[in-house]
Amino acid sequence: MAAREYGQYSGVTQALELVGERWAMLIVRDLLVGPRRYGELAAGLPRIPTNILAARLKELQAAGVLRRAPHSRIIVYELTPYGRELEPIVLALGAWGFKALADPRDEQIITPDSMTIDLRAAFRPEVASRLPATAYAGRFGQAELLIRVDGTVLDVQRGDGPADLAFATGPGIRRLITGELAPDRAISTGIVEVLGGHRNLLGRFANTFHLAA
């Protein structure tokens, strides 16, 4: 029996044998945002050793979770339909883990893909469907995201663009998303800095993206 096998015949153990190795689920998380080149995956997971990244990609490809595909004359990694079935699991895992988040350590950062998945996990389409379409330009540390909400549809892209509300924040955004801080208090304490647009829309953002602490 291989060292990574658990010796049990069950769906849970099989799943863990496929994606339970360290870094595997974070690779899946980032590929849920979109296809990535090898270098982009490495940049999004700055502490992963290159040999581990190569090994995990090979293992996940062999398991049918991801594949290599040509894209604009370059090779990217993308999830297969089987791999994309992990999306609700990853979002649920993110929402569960959000409950245990405390203040970040000095070496912890927010990446564009990690924040995108956190926003997907926190998105409340049943609330958004009752609100006007809104665009937010969010700067989360070094990660810049353009967040568009139109009814039950959430679209998150890297970069900047026209927005109804532009704001800058950091890991403290957790306190707004969990409801620990009211929007006005988040602004007055400097957790969120309004850069442009209508500051009252931060309340709409907090209603649209919410995870219980």
Score class of each variant (00 low, 15 high):
80 T>L: 08
81 P>S: 11
82 Y>W: 11
82 Y>R: 13
82 Y>L: 14
83 G>E: 10
84 R>K: 13
84 R>C: 04
85 E>K: 13
85 E>I: 05
85 E>Y: 03
86 L>G: 02
87 E>S: 04
88 P>D: 04
89 I>N: 05
89 I>E: 02
89 I>K: 03
89 I>T: 14
89 I>V: 15
90 V>P: 02
90 V>F: 00
90 V>H: 01
90 V>Y: 01
91 L>D: 04
91 L>W: 06
92 A>G: 12
92 A>R: 13
93 L>F: 09
93 L>M: 12
94 G>R: 03
94 G>S: 07
94 G>T: 09
95 A>V: 00
96 W>N: 09
97 G>L: 01
97 G>R: 10
97 G>M: 03
97 G>E: 10
97 G>Y: 00
97 G>Q: 05
97 G>D: 10
98 F>A: 14
98 F>Y: 15
98 F>E: 08
98 F>L: 08
98 F>W: 14
99 K>A: 11
100 A>H: 14
101 L>T: 05
101 L>M: 14
101 L>H: 07
103 D>K: 13
103 D>L: 14
103 D>M: 09
105 R>Y: 12
105 R>Q: 15
106 D>K: 13
107 E>D: 15
107 E>N: 10
108 Q>N: 13
108 Q>R: 05
108 Q>L: 14
109 I>M: 11
109 I>D: 03
109 I>W: 07
109 I>A: 11
110 I>R: 07
111 T>W: 01
111 T>E: 07
111 T>R: 06
112 P>V: 04
112 P>M: 08
113 D>W: 01
114 S>P: 02
114 S>G: 13
114 S>D: 10
115 M>E: 06
115 M>V: 02
115 M>C: 04
115 M>G: 00
116 T>H: 03
116 T>V: 06
116 T>M: 08
116 T>L: 02
117 I>E: 04
117 I>W: 05
117 I>A: 09
117 I>T: 11
118 D>Y: 11
119 L>N: 02
119 L>M: 12
119 L>P: 00
119 L>F: 13
119 L>A: 01
120 R>E: 00
121 A>I: 02
121 A>D: 06
121 A>Y: 01
122 A>P: 02
123 F>I: 03
123 F>N: 00
124 R>W: 01
126 E>F: 11
128 A>R: 03
128 A>W: 05
129 S>D: 12
129 S>N: 06
129 S>I: 15
130 R>G: 13
130 R>N: 15
131 L>E: 15
131 L>H: 06
131 L>Y: 06
131 L>F: 10
132 P>M: 09
133 A>F: 07
133 A>I: 06
133 A>H: 12
134 T>Y: 08
135 A>T: 15
135 A>H: 07
135 A>R: 14
135 A>G: 03
135 A>E: 12
136 Y>W: 12
136 Y>G: 03
136 Y>M: 04
138 G>W: 02
138 G>Q: 08
139 R>Y: 02
140 F>E: 02
140 F>A: 05
141 G>C: 12
141 G>F: 08
141 G>E: 05
141 G>Q: 08
